[in-house]
Design a protein around this nucleic acid. Structure first.
Length: 435
RNA sequence: CGGAGCGUGGCGCAGCCUGGUAGCGCACUUGUCUGGGGGACAAGGGGUCGUGGGUUCAAAUCCCGCCGCUCCGACCA
């Protein structure tokens, strides 16, 4: 993509409404624009990131055997009356009335819809287990949206719903999600820490929040430092195996948020205890037959009985992750994208647009990278070098390639990681490193 | 939902208290000089001052209503 053609309205100054780095940087980099309180439009740069995150989540979900579906954002109030949540949910649910005075709502979550689909279509234990997921918009009318996309009212979310014949099977489904979540966040360059969460009426140990570490995170985190050195991607995973040993290995390590942390009863010695901050980006929980009972989602168990199906649901805040990744990875000059979610891999800077030799070298590199399928943003505008460097740092592409008259005369270009010193190498070796 | 504050050009702000020609920085346009970390000079364009009413000879400015947004607290992917 040529910078001169790319719609990326960047700002030199900090917008007044942005209080935290990610919000500020997303606005300055031209990733998003606020449309209303807690409601955002995603511009090309931001949307590229959102799609990268979404795709990682999709790949990891598919790897567990879950299947992607797409449910409506607008739901009938009637289904929520069946589950009993229409009155329970409160003002966070956006209620709508159509022209026929029928009650509708913009879905804050989808247990009712998916349970309705399931009960109408599945009647036998032989069709279990099943796990369906979707990635799309939800709306929760938060009293106080803030922090940009980190706490919006409308947000992009991945949500799974598992269906099992009994509790043992439900635990296996739960464990798949648990392990899958660790992989998802790790692939985005984040350090995920699962924390036991309040599992509500059901009780038990089958509810975890996933926190990713970021200095500017909303919640304080106290944990065993082993978390920081454990890479989920190094695990050999077969989702058909019993994953309980892996889950046990992760959950036996201490981790707590500030509301659960108690200095006097903490099993980790203070000298070893890691204390930091984090952002909640995912939540998984098993809720048994809460909805299946209320809504009559039963299957034949093979012994002539109809039993309510065991369910769980599993969310990942996809749009929130865009902000969370920036919180976890930025410096004074701007964003520092992990390569897996970067909007482009390479920023190519022509330091002297209009200079024949510089143009020629840049065009050659740009064409070669495009041919190799390397996503490249080529800044070929007639701007001064400082402007281009500052903007490239702001948008945080993992690699910068700078081409200037000095180097071109000597037969070199400069290549470096975002934030690190650039080295002078030949065009060919720069290309070899990137392609 | 309790408390506080702010709406003036695309962004950041001043002007309001003490009513009288709407201003500054950035961004934008054109030109010249420049040319490796948001450059300089010059000339330009762009604003019914959130909105509706009221007071007044006269309202960005004073008064009232409404809308929007932000912050602090309680709640959440």
């Amino acid at each position: 993509m040529r910078r001169s053609k790319f719609f990326m309205p960047t700002m030199k100054e900090n917008p007044a409404e942005a209080q935290i780095p990610s919000h500020c940087l997303m606005l300055r980099a031209g990733m998003v624009r606020q449309t209303a309180a807690g409601i955002y439009s995603w511009l090309p740069l931001g949307y590229r990131v959102l799609k990268k995150i979404e795709q990682i989540v999709r790949e990891e979900m598919d790897a567990t055997g879950a299947q992607e579906i797409l449910m409506p954002t607008i739901q009938p109030a009637e289904l929520w009356r069946e589950s009993g949540r229409y009155d329970d949910y409160g003002k966070e649910m956006l209620r709508i009335t159509d022209r026929h005075e029928r009650g509708l709502l913009y879905g804050p979550t989808h247990e009712e819809i998916v349970t309705d689909i399931f009960r109408n279509s599945v009647k036998s234990y032989r069709d279990l287990p099943q796990n369906l997921y979707q990635i799309h918009w939800k709306f929760r009318d938060e009293v106080r949206p803030r922090f940009g996309v980190m706490r919006g009212r409308e947000f992009f979310m991945k949500d799974n719903y598992s269906f099992d014949i009994d509790k043992d099977s439900a635990r296996r489904s739960y464990n798949k999600m648990f392990v899958s979540y660790l992989r998802c966040f790790a692939r985005m360059g984040l350090t995920p820490i699962p924390m036991q969460a309040d599992s509500g009426a059901i009780g038990g140990d089958m509810s975890h929040e996933f926190i990713v570490l970021a200095d500017t995170g909303e919640s304080a985190v106290y944990c065993d430092p082993t978390w920081l050195y454990t890479d989920p991607l190094s695990l050999e995973i077969d989702f058909d195996d019993d994953l309980q040993p892996i889950v046990d290995r992760w959950t036996e390590l201490y981790a707590a948020t500030d509301d659960k942390y108690d200095a006097d009863n903490c099993p980790i010695d203070e000298s070893r205890l890691y204390t930091g901050r984090g952002i909640e980006v995912g939540h998984i929980f098993y809720f048994g037959t809460k909805y299946s009972t209320a809504m009559g989602a039963t299957v034949s168990d093979g012994q002539g009985r109809d039993v309510a199906v065991e369910m769980g649901s599993y969310g990942i805040g996809v749009s929130r992750l865009a902000g969370a990744i920036i919180e976890a990875s930025h410096d004074d000059n701007g964003i520092v994208w992990p390569e897996s979610v970067a909007p482009f891999k390479v920023g190519l800077i022509n330091l002297r647009s209009g200079d024949g030799p510089c143009d020629a070298v840049c065009e050659n590199i740009y064409a070669s990278l495009n041919n190799a399928g390397v996503e490249t943003l080529y800044d070929e505008r007639d701007e001064r070098a400082g402007v281009k460097f500052a903007e490239m740092d702001l948008i945080g592409l993992p690699w910068q390639v700078a081409v200037g008259p000095r180097g071109v005369k000597a037969g070199t270009v400069e290549i470096g990681r975002r934030g690190a010193a650039r080295e002078e190498v030949s065009s060919e070796s720069a290309l070899a490193r990137l392609a």
